[in-house]
Amino acid sequence: MKNLHDEKEVLQEERSILTAPLQRRSFLQFAGAGAAGIALIAAGCKKDKHIDDGAGNMGGVTLDFKDDLGVLNYAYALEQLEAAFYIQVAATPYANISAPELAYFKDIQFHEIAHREFFKNALGQAAIAGLEVDFSKINFADRTSVLGTAKAFEDLGVSAYNGAGKLLKSTAYLTLAGKIVSVEARHAAYIRELISPNSFSNVEVVDAVNGLDKSRDPKAVLAIAGGFVKTKINVINL
């Protein structure tokens, strides 16, 4: 399916290109009105080149774990996936969704958008491109399918952040990851309660002996997340 994030990005790009000439009269004088059309085509090319990621991995993105930026891009990839999922859930709610459930799904949607956009801005030029998602296995009209996927994504996100903390060298980034992971855990607990009361921290995710939540390393996480992403995700220096 069409990536919503990508689509929005392209729209924003188009808008800026269309409005830019108005701010630069001299450019308009020389190039005339036709320039906007040409610029749009150029924007399309730039987009393709961006997916190249500058590392020669045409058609994919590369998470380079040589430094903290790689870890942040890893988080950015996961947040893109989550945001795209909840945007779809909020746009096409499952049948007979209750008002409180819809309200909370909209909340979660905005949380994930906030996370995604935060990482995008924090990474700046170092950000990977927008991922193209594949939600063909999810039936958005069916509550069970949506809740099951939401639970899987949230538990995956929690375990991913828990496993990635030790890869970070910056205390500032570690704190930021900590600020986000507890919100993902709140989502996970809520969605689990919708599926089955008192499953908020059951043995699927929290071991009964030590009371510790799960951690997953990036390879294990991406093996699961990859099932929902069309874009090839390359991992190096891990």
């Binding site: 507890s182 921290s201 929290v206 951690s215």
Partner: peptide, 10 residues
Amino acid sequence: LNIHSVEARH
């Protein structure tokens, strides 16, 4: 971190 996220679930 593993305890932290459990507290958040709670």
